[in-house]
């Protein structure tokens, strides 16, 4: 994890008079969020990352019509594209053509383009929702630990240490391996997706939790908290009105940076065969099938590239967000 974000916003306070002068007669003040947004708009790299993220989200949401328009159903076999002798795609470059944009898989001839697009949906869904789970757990526990301190902080702090020291992948593999076929009114891969979201989210909360705790700890000492207390504010008011608004920026930044980590996590589990079960297409699952056909580079490259671009785009955007909220982090 990178250097913790400073929430003091003092960078924006450097030249109060000039800001005021620049604002002229404008009655509406410029919030720190708006100033950060103005900075973000000048950061071309972050904007490019953000653009790719938006594109990926659109692809994931509209995966069904996109596949209908440009490909074939992701589970459909196309034995006619396969050379029965070698079981490899007939055409050159892995069978790439106008019909099969990214070629076909060996053995059964499934459309790689469609499977990548369908995989985007599962990757992003799990990446986002697992992050939501960890942000909720991390924020609640981090704020409680930082605000109340004392033994509460001790207990939660130890809990974070335990989670951070855990051989996470091994444990997740074990846990994901024993997911039943049905439960909680769900079955098959629906249940597996839900379980993966909770497993990944549950194990990645301490990174957010630590940041939130540290920030809360320093916010609690700020005089505006004392000011609220001396006005008779209750804990709830102080937490929700004084502390949380100052935590939104760091939470947003680190959530953005956690999404790619969680996407990689899901890909790893699917790669290892304990994530989403085949034949449902996932990037990790495709990669794991592809390694058996290392003579066919396109089969490895496209899912690999999909993961790479997604992770990179989220990271670039997240870094840009952090810089926009805290330009001194350089």
């Amino acid at each position: 994890m990178t250097a913790p974000l400073d929430v003091s916003g003092s960078a924006a306070e450097a030249h109060p008079e000039s800001v005021l002068a620049g604002a002229g007669k404008a009655i509406q003040g410029r919030s720190l969020t708006r100033i950060a947004w103005m900075r973000l708009r000048r950061d071309k790299v972050a904007l490019a990352g953000g653009g790719v993220v938006v594109l990926l989200i659109l692809v994931a949401i509209f995966s069904t019509p996109i596949i209908a328009a440009f490909g074939h159903p992701p589970l459909e076999f196309h034995q006619d594209q396969i050379d029965p002798a070698t079981l490899l795609p007939k055409g050159s470059f892995g069978g790439m053509s106008a019909e099969y944009l990214l070629g076909v898989e060996p053995v059964n001839g499934r459309d790689i383009f469609s499977r990548i697009v369908a995989g985007a949906w599962i990757s992003l869904l799990i990446g986002f929702l697992a992050t939501v789970v960890s942000v909720i757990i991390g924020t609640v526990l981090g704020v409680i630990a930082g605000y109340f301190g004392g033994w509460v902080d001790q207990v939660i702090g130890r809990l974070m240490d335990v989670f951070l020291a855990f051989p996470l992948l091994v444990f997740a593999i074990a846990l994901a391996g024993v997911i039943p076929d049905q439960g909680f009114g769900l079955e098959g891969n629906g249940l597996r997706i839900a379980m993966l979201i909770f497993i990944i989210g549950f194990f990645s909360w301490p990174s957010i939790g630590r940041i939130v705790r540290g920030q809360t700890l320093s916010l609690r000492e700020r005089e505006f908290v004392d000011a609220a207390k001396s006005l008779g504010a209750r804990h709830g008011y102080i937490i929700f009105r004084e502390v949380l608004p100052n935590l939104m920026a760091p939470i947003l930044v680190y959530a953005t940076l956690l999404i790619p980590t969680n996407i990689l996590f899901e890909a790893s589990l699917s790669f290892l065969g304990v994530g989403i079960n085949p034949p449902t297409p996932t990037w990790g699952g495709m990669l794991s099938e592809a390694v058996r056909f290392y003579t066919l580079p396109h089969f490895v490259i496209f899912p690999g590239l999909a993961i790479f671009i997604t992770v990179l785009a989220f990271n670039l955007f997240g870094d840009g967000l952090r810089d926009a909220f805290d330009p001194r982090a350089h």
Binding site: L32, R222, E223, D226, P245, N246
Partner: peptide, 9 residues
């Protein structure tokens, strides 16, 4: 600088 919450008007 510390006694006013930077997120509030």
């Amino acid at each position: 600088y510390s006694s006013l919450n930077p997120r509030h008007t």
